[in-house]
C-alpha cells in the first residue's frame, strides 16, 4: 500500500505527459493540414499588399514635398 502512491504518481506522469504531447502533436499536424487546405482553396485576396505599396509611394511623395519645403525655407 505504501509504495503504491509513488508508482501512481509515475503513472500519472507518463499518461499525463503522453496525452499533452499527443494532443499537441495532433494539433500541429491538423494545423499544417488546415493551413495547406486554406492556402490552396481559399487564398486571401492580395489587395492588402497592393494598398501598402500605394502607401509607400504616397509616403515617398510626402517626404519629397517636405524636403523641398525645408530646402526652400532654408534658402529663404
Amino acid at each position: 500500500m505504501d509504495a503504491n502512491l509513488v508508482v501512481e504518481g509515475l503513472k500519472f506522469m507518463l499518461l499525463g505527459m503522453g496525452t499533452v504531447f499527443l494532443f499537441l502533436i495532433v494539433m500541429i499536424v491538423s494545423m499544417n493540414i488546415m493551413s495547406t487546405i486554406i492556402h490552396k482553396f481559399f487564398p486571401e485576396p492580395k489587395s492588402a499588399i497592393s494598398s501598402t505599396g500605394n502607401q509607400a509611394k504616397d509616403n515617398k511623395k510626402i517626404i519629397a514635398a517636405i524636403t523641398a519645403a525645408i530646402t526652400h525655407h532654408r534658402q529663404g
Binding site: 506522469m13 499525463g16 505527459m17 500541429i28 499544417n32
Partner: peptide, 22 residues
C-alpha cells in the same frame, strides 16, 4: 506550429512535481 511542442514540454513541471510531492 512546431513551437507548440515547447508548450507541451513545460507541462513536465506539473507532473514532475506531482511525483516529487507524492
Amino acid at each position: 506550429p512546431k513551437t507548440a511542442l515547447l508548450g507541451g514540454a513545460a507541462q513536465f513541471g506539473i507532473f514532475g512535481t506531482l511525483v516529487g510531492a507524492v
